[in-house]
């Protein structure tokens, strides 16, 4: 079965997010003053084969641990969706 794995990666709490700060400043400058915080991260899509959803999540978790995410500075969230039927 093919699964679409959506991996959302964002800077950890307490890590300087220079991009997020810069975006927040710009948003405020153009009038969006009522904002508390902005974080800029990335979104990775992976299509993979797995026997079931749990297996897909496990595989994606290993990918994150080994390459896609640096745990020192980044948090992540994994979402899985089955493709086709």
């Amino acid at each position: 079965m093919t699964f679409l794995v959506k991996i959302l990666i964002f800077p950890k709490e307490g890590v300087l997010d220079t991009q997020g700060k810069a975006v927040a400043r710009s948003l405020k400058r153009i009038g969006f003053e009522a904002l508390n915080d902005v974080r800029v991260g990335k979104y990775i899509q992976v299509w993979l084969e797995a026997g079931n959803e749990a297996e897909a999540i496990a595989k994606a978790g290993s990918m994150c641990g080994e390459l896609l995410v640096n745990n020192l500075i980044e948090d992540h969230r994994i979402e899985v969706e089955r493709c086709g039927l």
């Binding site: 300087l16 810069a22 640096n70 020192l72």
Partner: peptide, 15 residues
């Protein structure tokens, strides 16, 4: 990134 040294290098303050 290999873990041979601690820490991480982030984008410069000036972006």
């Amino acid at each position: 990134e290999t873990g041979l040294l601690p820490g991480a290098l982030l984008a410069n303050r000036s972006l």
